[in-house]
Design a protein around this nucleic acid. Structure first.
Lengths: 330, 330
DNA sequence: GATCGTCCTGTAAACGCTTACATGTGTGGG
DNA sequence: CCCACACATGTAAGCGTTTACAGGACGATC
């Protein structure tokens, strides 16, 4: 089943069939109708690989994430795919599992499949691997880690805003002994959150009380950090976690210690993953809209692909506190 | 950058380069080494679209799911992709959003991209759409909904086993007034779970007490169903939910009513999504291994693709109760 | 009626690879 | 020394599209 058979059935040349498929305006309506009918009758779907081969455009996009199993990503993936499918693009996904070697594999796969562009939505990114893409002039969008260039754009997430709002909220609730549980410190994005926490504390004259514990952005790390915090002579009255998973771990540790959130300790997360409002109590957290991130990334990629040079290559996603029930005044 | 340039650099013909890439055994080791070096130096990646065009095999697999945002799916997707990538295959994902129209779109996309096979991992499937695949002899694997054929296999999930174990567990804990919250009744898989519940009750001589409430496999449905159950003159002492999301909704409703799990009501879920052990208390549920499902689906698909006719086309995934802390004796 | 332009349609050459078949080279047996 | 044969490599067709270019029909203009 190919374009030739359609041509034969519609009694036209393959060129006309192709033009009809591609909505070229230079086909007589009557002819186009005949072709469309033949397509219908034969149930013909054009072969995208042949199209790609000649046109050079694969209508596929790469989306690289850390781990689809991490609740941060499914929404992101979904929104990104929705955008793509709406515009007749396919997306192929790569999970790096936080592993540079796997990241290299992902990039290779994308290059082989001749994707029209790649969105790298992981917090960590190895510049050496990225060259593989830029060298081939493949449009690339980064999250936090990139430097804008002729074929790449960067999406900054304004972590500081969310952290400041969280701090302000706790402060207004009379908390003064506030702890922060970080994620892996090798991540730029984690350092930004930490720095925002410290600067917020300092702005309120609280810097000497900085309680910082290290987590790993996973549940277990949050629980461990919280246990350390609880062992302190003067435990914090409020805790901000670098992400929701960490906060969920902390929540468990607090419960296990026989304490209650928010009665004994106030707790704030970051990201607003879908389970954040299902915890007991529902978690006050900072919203980082994955939909907005996906839409922005997609738009940035499209702009890059169309080489809209006038377009800026730097975007920012805001973050905001959403109050639920894990914080309370003291 | 194409095979010709590599050929020129290695001073061989394109055929030899192709043979080297495909590990044909009939290339002299010395020549192959020269070719490989040229490939290395030029940083050449073969164009998969061209390969597909001539070989007919795209090395792409389709994976159709309901909604990546539903916590049932990410693990499934991940395991499936892992399998695929290990074997040099790409997977393209389709979200149906529980909508037959979108399912049609997914299938169309997969056909256009000439996938070598499709795994349809949704509970609902429209036979009319499926013909689109079978007509083209595209190997297809179903979950629950398919009938094995020359190009298709079916993976049955043994829901009944899990439900029976759950019931047995509650029974041994002296519960007698046990309710069941279903999902959407148009799903075969939901009807199976419900039937298993009823037959289990009957086997224990409890059939006249069957308390069945309808949910929607989402949190809100679980909460609503639970609220109805709590309004009963004689509320159940234990509840089995058709899936974990439903159980989580029920859990919230129970809490909101000022009652406690498991002290006042025992609760059992189904699926063991990753958040099931993060609820307060951790949810006793029925494990349905998504990894096992993905591995089986992939293996079934591969067998179909290779036309291993001797292979069976019917697989079963077991389900088992995992006890955590949402159940207790009365 | 010749000339020109405008539309529409057809012809055929790519795109980058695989592979059947042809060709060339070296080996051993007669 | 010649032939057969195995083995390595090259030649070229073909996969299903798109698209530059050519060609033909028709109407308008002079």
């Amino acid at each position: 089943m190919n374009i030739k058979e359609v041509a034969k059935r519609a009694k036209v040349s393959t060129a006309t069939v192709s033009r009809t498929i591609n909505d070229s305006e230079k086909v007589k309506p009557g002819t186009a109708a005949r072709v469309r009918q033949a397509i219908e009758e034969l149930n013909f779907y054009p072969n995208t690989h042949a199209r790609t081969l000649v046109s050079g455009r694969s209508r596929m996009l790469g989306l690289i994430i850390s781990d689809i199993t991490n609740p941060f990503f499914p929404e992101l993936v979904k929104s990104f795919e929705d955008q793509a499918v709406q515009r007749g693009q396919e997306v192929i996904i790569g999970n790096t599992d936080y592993n540079p070697k796997r990241m290299a594999g992902c990039i290779r796969r994308m290059v082989e499949r001749k994707v029209d562009g790649v969105a790298i939505m992981t917090s960590e990114a190895d510049p050496a691997l990225i060259t593989e893409l830029t060298r081939r002039n493949i449009p690339t969008v980064f999250m936090d880690t990139g430097k804008p260039g002729p074929h790449s754009a960067n999406i900054r997430i304004d972590y500081a805003q969310g952290i400041h709002e969280a701090l302000q909220h706790l402060f207004s609730l009379n908390h003064r002994r506030i702890a922060f549980i970080t994620g892996p410190m090798n991540l730029e994005s984690v350092r930004i959150r930490r720095a925002a926490f410290l600067s917020g504390l300092k702005a309120r004259g609280l810097s000497e009380r900085a309680l910082i514990e290290k987590g790993d952005h996973r549940i277990e790390g949050g629980a461990m950090a919280m246990r350390s915090l609880l062992k302190l002579a003067q435990p914090p009255t409020a805790v901000i976690a670098s992400n929701d998973l960490t906060a969920i771990g902390a929540l468990g540790a607090i419960h296990d210690a026989g304490l209650k959130v928010p009665d004994d300790i106030s707790l704030i997360g970051f990201d607003d993953i879908s389970f954040a409002h299902l915890t007991q109590p529902p978690l006050t957290t900072v919203i980082l809209s994955r939909t907005q991130l996906a839409v922005t990334a997609f738009a940035a990629l499209e702009a890059l692909i169309r080489k809209e040079d006038g377009s800026h290559a730097d975007y920012t996603i805001p973050t905001h506190l959403v109050m639920r029930r894990s914080t309370r005044a003291i």
